Computed example of a mutant assay.
Amino acid sequence: MSIGAVLAALKPEFPAVTISKLRFLEEQGLVQPHRSGSGYRMYSRADAERIRYALTAQRDSYLPLRIIREQLADLDAGRGVEPLSHARMVTRDGELVAPATGARVSAREVCELTGATEAELDEMAQAGLVLADTRGRFPGRAVQVVQAVLALRRHGISPRHLRTVRTSAEREADVIDQVVAPLRAQRSGAARERSAAQAAELAELYARLHAELLRTAVDQLG
C-alpha cells in the first residue's frame, strides 16, 4: 500500500492522523516500509498493523514511543506483552466524551474513566492536583487532569513534581479573578454570564501563552 492508502485506512479510527505522523513513526523506527524503484514508500499489511498498534497505545494508554518500540520488539521476538489498563473514554467523531465541566464524579468513576488506580488518584489528591468535595466527589474536569498526570508519570514525572504547575495555575486564576470581578459583582444574570465567558477566554489565552513559552524553553535546551 502507498502511504496515502495507509492513511485512508487509518483515518476512520484515528481522525487526527496525518502523513507527517506516519513519516515520524518511521523516523522513530516503529515501522520500516519498503521503497519502490521510484523511491516511494510501500507498506505491507503488517506495517499498517504496527502503525495501528502504536497509535492505539498512544491514544488509549498514553505510552511514550520508547515503550511502544520496546513492546513491538517483544512482539517481533515472540515474547508476550503485559496488557495495560486503558482509559474507558468514549469517543464521538474522534473527540473524547468526558463528564461535563460542572458535573461531579466519584473516585471510582474517575478511575474507571482514566484507568488510574485508587492509590494513584490518592497521590494526585495529596499533591493538590485534584480536589474532592466533602462528599468525596470530584469535578468533571478532574478526568482530563488525571489523564494528563498519568501520561506524564509514564515519562518519570511524579505528581509531587507537578505542584509548581498547580501553584502557577492558581496564581493565574487569581489574576483572572481580579479582571472579571467587576462584572461578576453586578447583579444582572447577563453580566455574570459575560463574566464567566471572559474568564474562560482569559484562561484559554493563558494556556496558549504557557504552551508557547514552554515550547520556546524546550527549544533552547538544544
Rank of each mutant, 00 (worst) to 15 (best):
R88Q: 15
R88I: 01
D47L: 09
E95C: 12
S36I: 12
L96V: 15
Y43R: 03
M42Q: 15
R66A: 14
V97L: 11
P33T: 11
G102V: 14
R50Q: 08
L25P: 00
H34V: 13
A46K: 11
T18L: 10
T101I: 06
E70K: 10
G80Y: 14
A8T: 02
L63A: 10
F24L: 15
Q58Y: 01
T101V: 09
S36N: 04
S85E: 06
Y62A: 05
S20N: 08
H34L: 12
S20K: 11
S85N: 09
A73Y: 14
L22A: 09
V81L: 11
L84P: 03
A8M: 04
R79Q: 13
A57F: 07
K21C: 04
Q58M: 09
T18Q: 14
R50A: 03
Q32G: 10
R45W: 05
V17Q: 09
F14R: 08
G29K: 00
I51Y: 02
P15Y: 14
Y43C: 12
A100Q: 11
H86Q: 12
A98R: 10
T101K: 07
K21W: 07
R79I: 01
A100G: 14
S61G: 06
T91C: 04
I51D: 01
G102K: 09
V97S: 11
H34M: 13
A54E: 00
H34D: 14
G37Y: 07
V81Q: 07
L30R: 08
R66C: 02
F24V: 12
Q32T: 04
P99F: 12
K21Y: 00
E13S: 11
T56P: 06
L96I: 10
L63T: 00
P12A: 10
A100E: 13
P99I: 08
G80V: 06
G39R: 13
L10K: 11
S36L: 13
Q71F: 02
L75Q: 09
